[in-house]
């Protein structure tokens, strides 16, 4: 799906709004483990749903817009850079894994969590010119798997229901 018709623009902005709300909710949650870059990754829920409902192009578009808007509203210029590298690495991995059709959405999502954290830490090491930051990676790795599984399970439950709703709306509007 490219952004061509009014319906597509509507659906894209709907998911962008959802991702932004999830970004905002995430800033409200208390931090349990004080490690930089360790987050639940709630916005990833919106992104993985788009990835499954539509395609990589639509998901990237929404994710890039989400990162820039959320970065300027709740974060800093550097958080945008970290998020972008993490988001792209994780989206590429998730797209490849999804295309093989051999993995469940929960597995795809937890791989996305791991690679999001990996992308972020690589970018942080480059920006800060400090490779000691990789000592955080074991914890970020576990964090990525756990949050990825949680997001994956929610997405698995939501997807069939969303397909029903969006499918119905498309039929009704035509």
């Amino acid at each position: 799906m490219g952004v061509k018709s009014t319906k597509n623009i509507g659906i894209t902005s709907l998911f962008l709004a959802l991702a932004l709300v999830l970004s905002y909710i995430e800033t409200l949650l208390p931090v349990f483990i004080p490690i930089p870059g360790l987050k639940i990754g709630l916005p990833n829920l919106a992104i993985i749903i788009v990835l499954y409902l539509y395609d990589f192009k639509t998901a990237s578009l929404i994710n890039v817009m989400r990162i820039f808007i959320a970065g300027f509203m709740f974060g800093s210029a550097f958080s945008i850079v970290y998020s972008l590298s993490g988001a792209f690495l994780s989206m590429i991995i998730m797209t490849i894994m999804k295309k093989t059709k051999k993995f469940s959405i929960v597995t795809v999502s937890s791989a996305g969590g791991i690679f999001h954290n990996l992308g972020q830490i690589i970018m942080a090491a480059i920006v800060m010119e400090n490779y000691y930051i990789f000592t955080y990676f074991p914890v970020l790795f576990v964090g990525g798997i756990i949050t990825g599984i949680v997001i994956g399970i929610i997405a698995r439950e939501l997807l069939p229901r969303l397909r029903k709703i969006i499918g119905f709306e498309i039929k009704g509007s035509e």
Partner: peptide
Amino acid sequence: PDKLCEKMGKISRVGETIVCLPNKIVIT
């Protein structure tokens, strides 16, 4: 705003780091 570096606690061994991403400070 997040005060993550304060919550990271005490470090003492080689290779351990405290990072303050917003202020770009790394203690190694």
